[in-house]
Design a protein around this nucleic acid. Structure first.
Lengths: 151, 151
DNA sequence: ATAGTTGCAAAATATTTGCATTTAT
DNA sequence: ATAAATGCAAATATTTTGCAACTAT
């Protein structure tokens, strides 16, 4: 189980498995998809549990080092994480109008990247592909872009 | 010439072509590759010209809207831009050991992405692919990773 | 002349850190 | 008992913004 990986990781580094870390871990793994530090923090507060943003950030960093979660994107409104356990690798399309994220996977794409790495003598470890554009819904009303002032 | 595109863009929007905007434009286009707002700001200051960070940020936003430059990455130390004029589109391999960036281009990759967008009803505008791993040189001495404390 | 721009300093946002107190081991 | 973690508030860092002074048109 994933939690044991976390506990083992902490033990090996002489770090403690506190209830805050436990709660942050649980919440991070309760998400199927993306989450960001702030929403995770708020979700935990909602449950009545007492945590600080500091602990959230600190713990997310540990979970990243541990490989259990991954920062998949840096956006203007902060980092976006997802947990890696049992997650199929996938890439993202980001709608610049509504901010929606579409996940997709393509075996061909993966294969092609491996070939590219091979031909450039680069040992690829991971990658992120982000395609920006307009989702189906937003293609219709491209006039009103989010964020633009409409006085 | 690219500068005329900028001037025209401003004129059409009833905005002014100031010497600050001119300097920021020049500097942005003096880079072959990537730059970030802060280094660009410092470079201009170096020349003795008086500009503010505010103007740099404001002008980079205009140049983006205008399509002359593009934000290619959000990193923890801020945005990374590059100008788009005469730039062949390319993607990046980032060596996690030495921080080196290898640029590459693959027509097959582009085509594949278009197909993926088409099949998902997404109207792609731009994309960033970042492959992280080890460059040829660093594959040899993978033991000493940069950033790891060696007490 | 005037609408838009500048620089500054302050604000906003995301994240990190120092420190006294608390807690897991 | 003790080394590490917590929460808080203050510090950083990047980017944005309000405003009075300036400038391109």
């Amino acid at each position: 189980m994933e939690k044991e990986i976390f506990e083992k990781f902490l033990r090996e580094r002489g770090q403690k498995f506190t209830k805050e870390r436990s709660a942050i871990f649980e919440k991070a793994f309760s998400y199927d998809g993306h989450f960001n530090p702030e929403t995770l923090y708020l979700k935990i507060k909602e449950t009545g549990m007492k945590v600080s943003r500091a602990s959230v950030y600190r713990t997310l960093n540990i979970l990243s080092e541990c490989g259990l979660i991954e920062k998949v994107m840096n956006t203007e409104q902060g980092a976006v994480y997802e947990h890696t356990f049992g997650q199929k690798h996938h890439d993202h399309m980001l709608c610049v109008s509504c901010g929606g994220i579409i996940e997709f996977y393509s075996g061909d794409l993966e294969k092609l990247q491996e070939e590219l790495c091979g031909s450039l003598n680069f040992q690829g470890v991971s990658h992120t592909l982000e395609i920006r554009g307009y989702c189906k819904k937003c293609q219709k009303n491209k006039g009103n872009r989010e964020g633009e002032k409409t006085p």
